[in-house]
Design a protein around this nucleic acid. Structure first.
Lengths: 333, 333
DNA sequence: CTGAAAGCGCTTACAG
DNA sequence: CTGAAAGCGCTTACAG
């Protein structure tokens, strides 16, 4: 371990360049009213000392920091990691650093993450909340995926009902009349809207309603809980002929359960999924699903934040349309 | 948009509680030498105003912040997202917030991320570097996955050579003599050590060496590039009878290529992978691979950092042992 | 137990 | 074009 060295400060630079700190500050940020000679002298001094500005001091002074916090329930979920990457791309292009906070779907962690972000004077927040009744952060916030009506700068999510219409409509087109729904708990937007969307679409397509045909996985939308739910569906006296899984992880669990029960997909039971499994084409059978708009949602959410910061008027809630990709699991030839 | 409200400061709290700011500060952080009455009065004032301490000011004052930065090349890669979750678990238990930075494997982004973290006075950094010759951050750093010998507080990675020995040994035990390697570029630790480990293990097991039997994917270890590489292997006059993929994504690409070429796995060509594909058991065929130690590596790395901050002596480099999970893709009955 | 003062490192009106 | 001064919001020796 090397000797504890004090980081050089602007004062050190100014001293070495023989100017006042204020002049050094201006020279470093290319202010217009500075002589070329001074600028060069200061730049040389800064380089010589390996000067790096203290961002904490800058933030304290400016009362804001060029950061945008992205708060996600589970960074291990493909949807969220891709969202982060899409958002980051747009944010960095506008000079913001993305600060990712993973809450593990715990309201307490989210609370802490939000306070940390606020305390750090971040410029804005992109938030997929896991708190049933959340207070609005004191910083411009774009809610995504888990919406909180009326709060924040803007709201954006996938078109959950349109997606369900595509999925249910496709199965109904195959002649299915006993279609089950396997979804995440209807606590936040996606869970609620997909379930509601399924019900509405089922009704539109004349699909028989059956209480036992709605199965809910655990709150982390885990494959294991989906497998258990699927097993319950398969144990029914009158089993469904098709299943709509409201996420990729649930579809994977459902396939595993079918396999364990010796039921073939799609011959014995058809399956479609809301999110396209990442290795979808390699799964046996390849899964019919909606194309992922994850990156796009991230980019759009970031853009909404930037627009909002620029004072542009926001529409109440943005919906990203989805698109069906037909593969084998639905029983198409 | 509500009226721009100034956030209440400690001064506001002190004024309301009719004490000096210094007293308010002490009262809020439960300093011992404070009267119960004062403490209650200050607490009430803080609550009343909705006071939240300004972390930026605290950090500037303390010259350190209770944060640990985690810098990863690609948050969309399962290995890294799980690492983050494991590390975060340990860090939060010790009072640190994890700040995740995603570099997209770009040296420039990593540079910025590191400077941001330094500028923000984070207490420590967990770094999987993507810079060929990186300067050491001025903050206690634990290198993981991509090691940089001699630098930082500590170094930790999976036991790459032991893993390759398990994989090659298993295939050799099946009687394979023409074993190909499909890996990431040998630029950073994992790519280098796995390739070297493969070669050493192949030699130990008397596997024939053949220049064309080493295929390298692109630098993001993408499935697509692996599929292309696999296609090249399958086009060889004398094709290998088995392939070792040095990551889950590569294995997936390899399977896709085999399928596209009409070759059956494992009947026509056997396959094993270093990382267990997340939905491994659902892939056709289920992949024989090493059990993932991702979370564990994250936990260990975080613990190394905490130990190092406490002044404990560090060993030069920690290796996490791996373990083989046999499924169908290797040709086992 | 409480308060006045200094200072963390920077930036920006305000003078000159 | 350059400098002296104030202040961002906090904490902590130093007095009392």
């Amino acid at each position: 371990m090397s000797v504890e060295q004090r980081r050089p400060t602007l004062i050190d630079v100014a001293r070495l360049a023989q100017v006042a700190p204020s002049t050094a500050s201006r020279a470093l940020k290319e202010s217009p009213r500075i002589s070329e000679a001074t600028r060069l002298r200061v730049a040389a001094a800064a380089r010589g000392l390996g000067y790096q500005p203290n961002r904490v001091a800058q933030s304290l002074r400016a009362k804001t920091a060029p950061f945008v916090g992205i708060v996600v329930p589970d960074i291990g979920v493909t949807f969220y990691s891709r969202f982060v990457k899409g958002a980051q791309e747009v944010l960095q292009a506008s000079g913001y650093q993305a600060l990712v906070m993973n809450t593990e779907r715990e309201a307490g962690h989210e609370e802490v993450a939000l306070r940390t972000l606020e305390g750090h004077q971040v410029t804005g927040i992109l938030l997929a909340t896991s708190r049933p009744k959340s207070a609005e952060p004191h910083i411009p916030t774009v809610y995504f995926d888990s919406l909180a009506d009326g709060r924040g700068l803007a709201q954006i999510a996938l078109a959950n009902d349109q997606g369900m219409e595509l999925l249910v409509g496709h199965l109904a087109g195959h002649g299915h009349e006993r279609i089950a729904y396997l979804g995440g708990p209807p606590i936040f937007t996606s869970g609620q809207e997909r379930l509601a969307g399924f019900r509405a679409a089922a009704e539109r397509h004349g699909v028989r309603r059956h209480a036992a045909y709605v199965e809910i996985a655990d709150s982390s939308w885990s494959s294991d809980s989906a497998a258990a739910a699927m097993a319950r569906l398969l144990a029914l006296a009158e089993t469904p002929t098709a299943v709509v899984a409201s996420a990729d992880t649930l579809a994977m669990g459902a396939i595993a359960a079918c396999r364990a029960a010796g039921r073939r997909v799609p011959e014995d039971i058809a399956l479609v999924a809301f999110d396209d499994p990442v290795f979808g084409p390699l799964v046996d059978p390849p899964v019919t699903a909606l194309r992922r708009g994850d990156y796009e949602l991230g980019r759009e959410a970031a853009q909404l934040l930037l627009d909002g910061l620029n004072g542009e008027i926001m529409t109440p809630a943005v919906r990203l349309p989805v698109e069906l990709v037909v593969r084998r699991s639905c029983g198409c030839p």
